[in-house]
Design a protein around this nucleic acid. Structure first.
Length: 226
DNA sequence: GCGACAG
DNA sequence: ATCTTGTCGC
């Protein structure tokens, strides 16, 4: 199946994209809709080359039980839009979808570097990715874009506390590794808020990032062979 | 008007 | 994100 959603071209008007985000955000499902037990998962991340003119997306497919790498692909496309806070997905999604299509098979669950619904209009790149592909997805962010935590986060590995925007919970702050800044976890698509943090911890070994995203990160930033 | 602002 | 060595801390 080929995923080629009509992503609007960058003509300098972010208003059209913001309106589309609000529309797509209505299609997000916050109920668990992934295969149980999980058989495969995949990590997705984007990096840049040639001073940013080339967008390089990486997709790494793993066996959910053993964490063994089943397949990994890299897609390089010309960068067509600048980075604009809140509109990240329109810049990085094209390359990410290309990398997904190159995989031998789609994952039961996708971990995307960036936010899910922890976004101003509840459509971060992980949620956008999930809605256009129909795949269950979770956002794994390394810093907060919107929202704040009310309570202090415990230092113990696996501890988590709600990330909220006003009175609404939009994700979790997760201490994936002691002594490190917490990850910002939020549902993307077909994943319940209550399941998100636990699903991420299931794939964390000894690093801050869960294996799917950690491996994709290395591949996208071409540090896997260096 | 001012400051913030995923990657 | 990216440019980059050494350095502080668990």
């Amino acid at each position: 199946m080929d995923h080629k959603p009509d992503l609007p071209e960058w003509h300098g008007n972010g208003d059209a994209m913001r309106a589309l985000q609000i529309e797509l955000a209505r299609q997000v499902s916050l109920r668990d809709g992934f295969a149980k037990p999980l058989r495969t998962v995949a990590g997705f991340d984007v990096g840049f080359e040639e001073a940013g003119s080339i967008t390089r997306a990486a997709a790494v497919l793993l066996d959910a039980s053993t964490l063994a790498v089943i397949d990994q692909q890299v897609a390089c496309l010309p960068t067509r839009m600048p980075y604009i806070p809140g509109l990240l997905s329109f810049r990085e999604l094209p390359a990410l979808l290309e990398a997904l299509n190159m995989l031998s098979s789609p994952p039961d669950l996708a971990f995307v570097d960036g936010h899910g619904i922890a976004h101003p209009r509840r459509l971060g790149i992980a949620a956008h990715f999930g809605v256009v592909t129909g795949l269950p997805s979770i956002g794994v962010g390394k810093s907060i874009h919107v929202g704040e935590a009310r309570q202090a986060l415990h230092g113990m590995r696996g501890a988590f506390t709600p990330l909220r925007d006003g009175r609404e919970q939009i994700g979790w702050l997760l201490r994936s590794k002691p002594g490190c800044l917490p990850l910002v976890i939020s549902p993307g698509h077909k994943v319940a808020m209550a399941s998100a943090a636990e699903l991420v911890m299931r794939f964390v070994t000894t690093y801050r990032l869960p294996e799917p995203t950690r491996l994709a990160d290395r591949l996208a930033s071409r540090r896997d062979s260096q």
